[in-house]
């Protein structure tokens, strides 16, 4: 554990809790992509099945359980409790275009051929692109609520901080995993446009709207 990793995890946790808070407080999931949330739930489920097979630390297990619970909770709020507020007309990204390539790639570029390892690899690839339906939705509606922007910023920062963590781990522990690094870089690049808009608009107190 190092400071970059810890900040990354906390940023990730903050993002997930911000989203739940937003939906609960406004009693609405308007502007949130249910498809992105579904993809994240698939990601956590595929990756954290190792809760049953390996133990790393209490911190690790607790965070995994929180991420899993929060993501299923978010789906429950979006597709059941506040379903009438879900803006599905604007959430039209085809997620099979993301799931199928991620699955295929996880059979091609993978460390070892075991079910758990392929599921883990699939989760890494899918996570890298899981935000695309949400970004697509923002671009279709041309705007995002401020709290949604904070959510996206925290979520994007998490993987960027993980990149710093990987650089740090490379120098201090000789730890290197190209699968997570490449996927993490792709994931962070996808947020770049958004980061720019966030810094130039939201931080100056303006609502995020596209030109």
């Amino acid at each position: 554990m190092n400071i970059f990793r810890l900040c990354g995890d906390l940023s990730h946790l903050l993002a997930i809790l911000l989203l739940l808070f937003k939906i609960w407080k406004t009693r609405s999931c308007a502007g949130i992509s249910g498809k992105t949330q579904l993809l994240f739930t698939i990601v956590y489920t595929a990756r954290y099945l190792d809760l049953f097979t390996s133990f790393v630390s209490v911190y690790n297990s607790v965070m995994k359980i929180v991420f899993l619970t929060a993501s299923y909770g978010t789906l429950y709020l979006m597709f059941y409790k506040f379903k009438p507020t879900y803006d599905h007309n604007h959430d039209s990204f085809r997620i099979l275009y993301l799931i199928v390539p991620a699955l295929v790639l996880s059979f091609i570029i993978v460390h070892v051929y075991t079910v758990m390892e392929i599921l883990w690899t699939f989760s890494i690839y899918l996570e890298a692109v899981a935000i695309m339906p949400q970004l697509f939705m923002v671009s279709r509606t041309g705007e995002a609520e401020t709290i949604t922007s904070h959510y996206l910023f925290a979520l994007g920062s998490y993987r960027a901080l993980y990149i710093l963590n990987w650089i740090y781990r490379y120098y201090t522990e000789d730890f290197l995993d190209w699968i997570t690094i490449m996927a993490g870089i792709v994931q962070t690049i996808l947020y770049c446009d958004f980061f720019y808009l966030y810094i130039t608009k939201v931080l100056k107190g303006k609502r995020l709207s596209l030109p």
Binding site: H12, V56, K64, H111, Y162, T180
Partner: peptide, 10 residues
Amino acid sequence: GNPKEGKDEL
């Protein structure tokens, strides 16, 4: 470091 045994990240 063997990343397969690592999996200590979230």
